[in-house]
Design a protein around this nucleic acid. Structure first.
Ligand SMILES: NC(=O)c1ccc[n+]([C@@H]2O[C@H](COP(=O)([O-])OP(=O)(O)OC[C@H]3O[C@@H](n4cnc5c(N)ncnc54)[C@H](O)[C@@H]3O)[C@@H](O)[C@H]2O)c1
Ligand SMILES: NC(=O)c1ccc[n+]([C@@H]2O[C@H](COP(=O)([O-])OP(=O)(O)OC[C@H]3O[C@@H](n4cnc5c(N)ncnc54)[C@H](O)[C@@H]3O)[C@@H](O)[C@H]2O)c1
Lengths: 252, 252
DNA sequence: AGGAGCTTGTGAACGTGAGAACAAAATCGG
DNA sequence: CCGATTTTGTTCTCACGTTCACAAGCTCCT
């Protein structure tokens, strides 16, 4: 019995070696911080040091690390190289993962040119696009290939991660093709909600959303009472000023 | 500090019109969904419809919207245009925010070429780079300008949002310059933890981290018991195989 | 050898978020 | 005009995440 049988409010009911999602999302940050420390020639670091480097609270860092095991030494701290390897192993980046990028436009080009993935556990094995004018173009040491080759590539290179940088329109269709081909993790840059079957993981990156979140807080800083930097809101009559006028009622 | 007088465990103790962070992060998604519905000519949508379009649970959506006010009609649903305007107003994107992008390399170019920001409440007013070879280059209808002009631009255009797409090395320095110039919200793409004074908001986008999170789950799918796709781990002796050998001990 | 001084690992308290469930309000048909 | 139907707004409960605080454990100095 892995303890998941008793559904009582006691302990957080952690599954066998199941690491909380919030912790998983921070492990890569710790990994980055450890790599930086290692590059600086630092061999040992306390949770306080590491927490500072990673931009988190030290108690949180210690608790996060405790899910992986007891890799520190009381009274001393953590061995940088050792912990780095343990985290890399837990994340699964001790060997490279094959990745395909679909949609080699502005963003796809930037990603294809980026050298940082190789050093972080990922190997881009193909750049795919549906536009015949793009197919054959060289980017770095790679060549853009036809999207139709997807299935062959996924099988040949055992690709399990796909990146979607197509426009929003074809994104779901591209996603379906990826999943059908055997890809089980997708990073989506298109501003749409993709639906996938169980067992497939999706993460999305939406830059407009990030900016809008910043805008929300920005608006509250200046004015404090819903007075944006360039205050030009009408009275709260509930009518949109520059949109097709729509009353508060609905069916009328 | 407005409130903080009654520090009791009763209701969630919401600040005066303070919207939970988790909700703030979803509002842009609702906005996007509403815009899509609007473009499809749909005038009214129930919380169920909206929730599906936004990829969330309908109870969560209703609760989120309830923080903004009572903008729906029981028995009917929400007026798409009306709700869209209310959310846009709450986020603060009923008028445009001026944005500067610093570091016009691969990623900076992609962002500069992206047309989606303009329709979502943001106006890119300057592309800045420290490399003299880049200054003067035209991208779309803009021209890359020298980073030294930052302060003038921020003041002239009342810029409050900055985007950092420089390498990790100079990112903190660039960040400091932005803050000193008066920028109070920063979107950071460089893989470093930036430190900023209180009152300045930071959001980060790190694609390697996103991929690593996917890799973690991918690893658990295949193998289930820490058996990655290409199992090649040594016994758990605590030594890194291909890193400079480091013992488990620390001071020895 | 023994105690002083650190730092980890974790139990417990607290706060935030998610989802089920339902009463309140609006429309519609008769 | 009234009751059936629909869907919102909100309450309640549980799960998850964060932070505090401290005992356990390690090292080093005397
Ligand atoms: N460029 C940015 O900075 C930026 C910022 C935020 C969001 N995005 C989003 O990222 C995505 C890509 O943006 P972009 O600026 O690179 O767009 P883009 O138009 O420059 O590139 C899209 C590419 O996808 C290809 N494509 C279209 N349909 C395809 C299909 N069915 N199969 C394979 N390839 C297909 C096109 O040929 C094109 O090369 C968009 O969804 C956009 O909204 C981009
Ligand atoms: N390109 C990608 O797909 C990608 C993916 C993940 C992360 N990133 C990160 O995004 C950042 C940018 O990536 P990139 O590929 O565009 O890099 P890049 O090297 O192509 O561009 C960086 C630009 O910043 C400019 N710059 C350097 N120092 C500066 C300074 N002090 N002030 C102003 N400008 C300065 C350089 O002149 C250059 O034009 C990096 O931190 C990278 O790690 C990029």
């Amino acid at each position: 019995m892995t303890r998941a049988s008793s559904r009582r409010p006691g302990p957080p009911t952690r599954t066998e070696r199941g690491i909380p999602e919030a912790t998983v999302a921070r492990l890569p940050v710790y990994l980055r911080a450890l790599t930086a420390l290692s590059d600086s020639g630092i061999a040992t670091a306390s949770s306080e040091d590491l927490a500072t480097a990673a931009g988190v609270n030290s108690a949180k860092l210690r608790k996060d690390l405790s899910y992986l095991g007891s890799y520190g030494t009381r009274g001393v701290g953590y061995d940088v190289e050792y912990l780095r390897y343990q985290i890399a192993r837990e994340i699964g980046v001790t060997q490279d993962w094959a990745v395909v990028i679909v949609g080699i436009g502005n963003l796809g080009h930037a990603l294809a040119n980026y050298s940082g993935f190789g050093t972080r556990g990922f190997r881009i094995v193909a750049l795919l696009d549906a536009d015949p004018a793009l197919v054959g173009e060289r980017i770095g040491d790679m060549e853009v290939r036809d999207f139709a080759e997807l299935e062959d590539i996924v099988e040949a290179d055992r690709v399990s991660i796909g990146v979607i940088t197509t426009p929003a329109g074809p994104a779901q269709e591209v996603c379906d093709r990826l999943v059908a081909a055997g890809v089980t993790s997708i990073l989506n840059f298109a501003p749409v909600v993709l639906s996938v079957p169980d067992g497939v993981d999706i993460r999305k990156v939406d830059l407009s959303i990030e900016l809008q979140i910043l805008a929300y807080h920005e608006q509250r800083k200046s004015g404090e009472v819903a007075l944006p930097q360039v205050p030009e809101l009408p009275a709260t009559n509930g009518l949109t000023p520059d949109l097709p006028a729509v009353g508060g009622g609905v069916g009328a």
